[in-house]
Amino acid sequence: MAPSAVNKKDDGPSQDFDLEKTADEAKSLLEKIIKDVGEKSATRQLIFGSASGWLTGFVMMKLGKAAAFTLGSGIIALQLANSSGYVKINWDKLTRGVEKIAEKVEDSTADKKKGLMNKVGRYVDQKLDKAEDILRKKEKKAKRWFNRISRDEDEFVFEEIHVFLTCYAIGLVLGISCGIVVR
């Protein structure tokens, strides 16, 4: 008896994944979290910043170690299988295939280099024109910004969020160092 085809009914319009919308939502959520954290007391910011930074660094190091172990184990296992005779690698064919692919990539990129350089040039020109227009329109803001950066006019103004950011950076470094040391 042949299996019958299953007909699926559409429950509604298909929802496509919109990367731009998701990025905007993530950005607004992150800004809201940072704003909320910036309004908390310095002690809470210190604790939250240090803990979240340490956790981020520790997890990052553990995932990195796991990925390196997996990749290295795979390479060693393939080499052991090759030397034991379970797998036979035709090195000449592999080399020829890699050379053909390299030639194709080189040919395709050589044609695109000129177009890419033109695109980059146009993009940079557009951005420079836009920056020039902004500076002309808002010269006062630009001067204030420049003076703030060069510290001619204003000195650094300490804000509450700086406690969190500093503690996060310190916690991140500590988490990475603990991830290296802890096995």
Rank of each mutant, 00 (worst) to 15 (best):
V157N: 07
K93H: 10
S41A: 13
L30I: 09
S4L: 07
V120G: 03
K32D: 15
Q126C: 07
L46V: 05
A67M: 13
Y86M: 12
K8N: 10
D152I: 09
A66F: 11
F158G: 00
A67P: 00
R122F: 07
G57A: 02
M61K: 04
Y123W: 15
L63V: 08
K114A: 11
S41Q: 09
E139D: 12
V105F: 14
K8H: 14
K100H: 03
K138T: 08
D11W: 10
S50A: 15
K114F: 07
N118H: 10
V105G: 05
Y86C: 03
A142Q: 04
V173P: 00
F48T: 06
G64N: 05
V173Y: 04
K119V: 04
D10L: 15
I176V: 15
M1V: 02
G179I: 02
T43G: 10
R148A: 06
E31W: 12
T95P: 00
Q45H: 03
K62M: 13
S177A: 15
D152W: 08
T43S: 12
V124K: 15
G64E: 02
L19V: 10
G121I: 09
C167Y: 03
T43N: 11
E39R: 05
G53K: 00
I47R: 00
T70W: 06
I89L: 13
V120A: 13
K65R: 14
R122K: 15
K62T: 05
G74I: 03
D129W: 01
R183W: 08
A102T: 14
I176T: 10
I76L: 05
T43Y: 11
D18Y: 05
K143A: 10
A26D: 12
K32T: 15
A67N: 05
I76H: 02
V87P: 03
S52N: 04
H162N: 07
R183S: 12
I180Y: 15
G72R: 13
D125M: 12
D152A: 12
L135F: 08
L80K: 14
L29Y: 12
I161W: 05
K130Q: 08
R151P: 00
E155M: 01
K8A: 14
L19P: 01
S73P: 00
C167W: 01
T166F: 13
I101Y: 08
G175T: 03
